[in-house]
Amino acid sequence: MDDDLIIGGEKFSSRLIMGTGGAPSLEVLDQALVASGTELTTVAMRRLDPSSRGSVLDVLRARGIKVLPNTAGCFTAGEAVLTARLAREALETDWVKLEVISDERTLLPDPIETFDAAERLVADGFVVLPYIGDDPALARRLEQAGCAAVMPLGAPIGSGLGIRNPHNIELIVEAAGVPVILDAGIGTASDAALAMELGCDAVLLATAVTRAQRPDLMAEAMRLAVRAGRAARQAGRIPRRRYAEASSPMHP
């Protein structure tokens, strides 16, 4: 049965989107990406360093993985719009993971700057995937503004704290007409499975894999967790009950 993820009219058979930050080497990253089965992976834009050897782009190209540039490191809408335009020029894609952070300690997304940038980028023809807090009202406003998906966090970037407010994630999912991608905070496979059980359409993670002791094995765990969580969501879980409900006949 086909169960494709569709973002901006484009189909993906994997619902695991990977980031590339934190990997100790391009070789380790390559093995992790293969094990994850991902078809869409983020990169950041930075000043070209003439001394650096090898490129994350070569890894993604060789594996046929679509590149999703982000605007990580931007604090204002203006910076994010310029970074997105540079990424479009360098990478020949009009897709952008919009990320506008409010401070370096929490790396939490700034909702005002993010919304401002999203409106400008949509008007400029971008396929915009905004990283946001777990805020159902903001998610809805960004969808109305023309974003192709919304990416609420589970917990701060790199924290591995999992999904701190599952109720809000469910509220976002219930109201959304675009894909909901759980982004940030995933620490281990059960977090990724929970995101999918809550009804998210996909999961984006990086640190949980790239800084694991065995990145390729964790990547495989995440691949399986996303599939398991998706299947469980579609299967429909049983209601939670206060007391037991016998699964065997009670009297011999």
Partner: peptide, 28 residues
Amino acid sequence: EVVSRGAWSSTTLSEADRVEVLTAVQGG
């Protein structure tokens, strides 16, 4: 302001201009 690749060789610089040259790196 972005300078598209096609305009690199026809865009002249002035004293004290700021040029940023970016590429993709690991991130996100």
